[in-house]
Every structure is written in structure tokens, then in C-alpha cells.
Design a protein around this nucleic acid. Structure first.
Lengths: 241, 241
DNA sequence: GTCTATACGAGGATAGAC
DNA sequence: GTCTATCCTCGTATAGAC
């Protein structure tokens, strides 16, 4: 019944390489039953399960995700999921926590320093941080999305809405200072989040890539960051700025 | 094996009342077994199933949706679903078709007249049409979203991407005419769709309504339409316009 | 057309050997 | 820690009476 603790999450902050951290590396591709002794590595097993689960949950959400599918991707037995995470819900919560950790951490770090900056500058900093985080882990937006729609946020411990609060605070200051045009900070915050995150939601669908460009390639991600920032800044600034 | 045809979809175009058309009215709340004869009305039964299914699919998507849950909401027997729609997938496709019909129709109507208008005007017309459509049926964005993420658009018969093409055409014209700033129309189109639609995705989650305001109330929807249009127009227009 | 009852398979979770 | 084998619930789909 003793199940592994899940606190050891490495902080990958804005490195140059993207999805590598989240890539699934099956432990044993084809176990040669005869003499290949079982590899016993608790950490590695948990990591590989978490990575596979993240992928599965990002696509299907909690309910539609299949533990068998997760196990299949990892190369470890299905029962390992239950050994380490108790049940599907436990695994889901671990995935949720792990995939949000980086973003929450980055925004929290930023939050205090933002108040001393001009609203336009603060907004740009916020956007860069947000966009680089989700570019590093493009599965995050769909995970958030499934959680919001399917489960109506019941697995969120009122943590992630700090992000919106941070954004709203910047917007309110900008309106007050006259740098931003008249707008409702609540509505605008949602629209800005939509501008930044929707891209990743569509990414799975739009593989028709008009000019053969995949939405999650490094080049396209960088372009999205630029376009989303430009669009947002232009969208909130006062015409005469 | 003969199952009902599903072509009779009423065109509800920009009326004043919102979700009423999609409201589920259970056929028989508590069937008094003794003398209450069964109500036989094929059209009504199908309609009530479709409405309930739309709600269920909007929240859960195809895989996680439960036919039992759909039946429960309607008050008709579960087997009626299979009688009229063959199986869960058939019902799903019917729902998909019905919920997209109005939007596709509206955009298609608009498409031809748009070319003769100035890009800024065309864009605003497009946005109004899009936003009013989804405000009438707030479930549509989450349905699209589930379909895109879970099923990677396999049930879309390359129909709905005409919407994006229409939008991209407007943007390209605006850039060419100098009315819009330099931008990538593909990226910008996604970001604009995000601005318009993300609101509805978050709607289920954000019921914490800061000042007690529900996101799908008429007042809030109208505000969203205004804010999304203002944000988008400001976001694409050339600074000196 | 509508219902009730039921067959059957999929998938979550556990037992127990190694 | 890891695996295989198994249990059993839940959910899709069908049969058949009315």
C-alpha cells in the first residue's frame, strides 16, 4: 500500500530545448523473457508513467483516458499505475500538479516584481513568461481545458486562477495610468488568455499545415509567441499611446 | 433498422432569445404507469435526445459521454437513442452537424458579400456574426474543442475550416491595403478565434463570477461580444490607421 | 415508437507469484 | 518493484414484449 511520493519535480525553466523533458522513453522495448532481468528503478518507472499519462490525459481528459493505453506507451505493466498512484484519479492529480508546477512557479516569481514596472512592460513580461512556459509544454493548455470543461475545475485547488488575477492587476493598472484603452479587465484577461492558449488547442487538429508547417515546430512556436504578444499589446494599448 | 432522417434543422438566426432552442424539455417527467398512455412523437423524441446529447457531448466529448446520462436527461428510454441514431457515434455525428449548421450557414452567407467591403468593415461583420452565433449556442466552442483535441477532427468533413479561410482572406486583404499592420494571417486567424471562443471554454470553470456575474448571462455575453470585437480590431489595425 | 430486461465486451482495479 | 492472471463493475448495444 505504500506508494511513492511525487514531490521530485525538476524545474525546467525556459531552456532552449522544448518537449524533451516530457518525451516518453519506454523502459524496455521488447523484454527478452529468457535472461533479461527486470529493471528495478522506482523513479524511472514513475517518471515514464507520468509522461505517458500526461500525453493521454492531454488528449482525452480524465474520464476518457485509458489506463491500459497509458501502460502500453510506457512498456511497464498496468498494475504499476495502481502501485504508485493508487488509482486513475490519483495519477490524474499527479499529472495535473506536475504540469502546472512550472507555470505557477514562473508566474509567482514574476508577480512581485511586476508591480514596480510600467503596465505595458509588465504585460509584455507576463506574456513572454506565459507563452514560453506553454511552448515548453504544449500539452498544458489542453489539460487545463479538459479539466475546466469536463470536471469544471474540481481538481484545481484554487491555485491556477492566480494567473488570471496577476493579469487582471496589470490591466487595471494600465487602464488607470492611461496606457491602456478603456476595457473590462476581467473580460480582457480571458480574451488574452484565449489569444495565447487557443493555438495549442487547435494544434492537434490543424495538422493540415497550409504550407507544410507543423504548429508545434520550434519555428512556428516562436512565431506564435511573437504574434500573440504583438496582437495583445496592440489590442489593449490606447490608440494614441 | 429504419432510422429517422435528421435533416430538419430550424435555422435560428440571431434571434433575441438565447439558449431556449437548445433547452431540454423532458417528454414525461413522471410517467404514471396506470393510465398515461405513451406519447408517440418521433420528431419530439429525436429533438429531445439531440438536445440532451449536445449538452453531454459538449461537456464530455464523444468517448467520455454516457448514453445513459443522455437518456436520463430526456426522460425517454435509452434504447431510443439506438433506434434513431444507430449508435453513440451516429448520435455524435448528428449533434456535430446540427450544432455547426447555423454558424456555417451564416458565415457562408456572409462570405460573398465580404469581398466588396473594406477589410476593417468586413472583419467587424465577420466578428459580429461569429460571436452572435456562438452566443446563441455557447456549447459549440467546447464541442469543437473536444472534437479537435480528442478526435483530431476526424468527424469534421473539412467543412468548418472554411471559417478560418474566410477570416484569413480578410486579414490578407487588410494587410495588403495597409489598413492592418504587418501580421501572419494564419497565426492571427487562430489568435482571433481564440479571443472569440476561449471565453466559452472557460465559462464552465469560471463560475466563481467575481462580482456574481455568470459568464453566460445575456449581459455578460453582450459585453464579451463588445470586448472581443474591440480587442481584435485594435489588435490588427495599423497604429496610425 | 416506446419500454424493460438482458447479453456482452471494455476497462478499472486487485491478487499473488517472482 | 514488477509481472501475469483474474475479478467485477460499468456502459454499449440488442431482444422482444407492448
Amino acid at each position: 500500500m505504500i506508494r511513492g511520493e511525487l514531490e521530485e519535480r525538476k524545474k525546467v525553466i525556459l531552456t532552449d530545448k522544448f518537449v524533451d523533458f516530457y518525451k516518453i522513453v519506454p523502459r524496455a522495448a521488447k523484454p527478452d523473457k529468457s535472461n533479461t532481468k527486470q529493471v528495478r528503478d522506482a523513479e524511472a518507472t514513475q517518471a515514464v508513467i507520468l509522461a505517458a499519462a500526461e500525453e493521454e490525459f492531454a488528449i482525452h481528459g480524465l474520464t476518457a483516458a485509458r489506463t491500459e493505453a497509458i501502460a502500453a506507451k510506457t512498456g511497464v505493466a498496468k498494475s504499476m499505475i495502481y502501485y504508485y498512484f493508487k488509482d486513475k484519479e490519483g495519477l490524474y492529480q499527479a499529472v495535473l500538479e506536475r504540469s502546472h508546477a512550472n507555470l505557477l512557479h514562473v508566474i509567482q516569481q514574476l508577480d512581485s516584481s511586476l508591480e514596480h514596472l510600467a503596465p505595458e512592460v509588465a504585460l509584455e513580461k507576463f506574456l513572454v513568461a506565459l507563452l514560453e512556459c506553454v511552448s515548453q509544454n504544449p500539452k498544458l493548455p489542453t489539460i487545463m481545458f479538459h479539466e475546466a470543461v469536463q470536471n469544471q475545475g474540481k481538481y484545481y485547488s484554487s491555485s491556477s486562477l492566480n494567473i488570471d488575477k496577476t493579469l487582471m492587476a496589470i490591466l487595471d493598472r494600465g487602464v488607470a495610468s492611461g496606457a491602456f484603452r478603456q476595457l473590462d479587465s476581467f473580460q480582457a484577461a480571458i480574451n488574452i488568455m484565449g489569444t495565447c492558449l487557443f493555438y495549442f488547442i487547435g494544434a492537434g487538429n490543424i495538422q493540415q499545415h497550409p504550407q507544410g508547417r507543423r504548429l508545434l515546430s520550434k519555428a512556428m512556436l516562436e512565431q506564435h509567441i511573437q504574434e500573440a504578444i504583438a496582437f495583445t499589446l496592440a489590442g489593449v494599448k490606447k490608440p494614441g499611446f
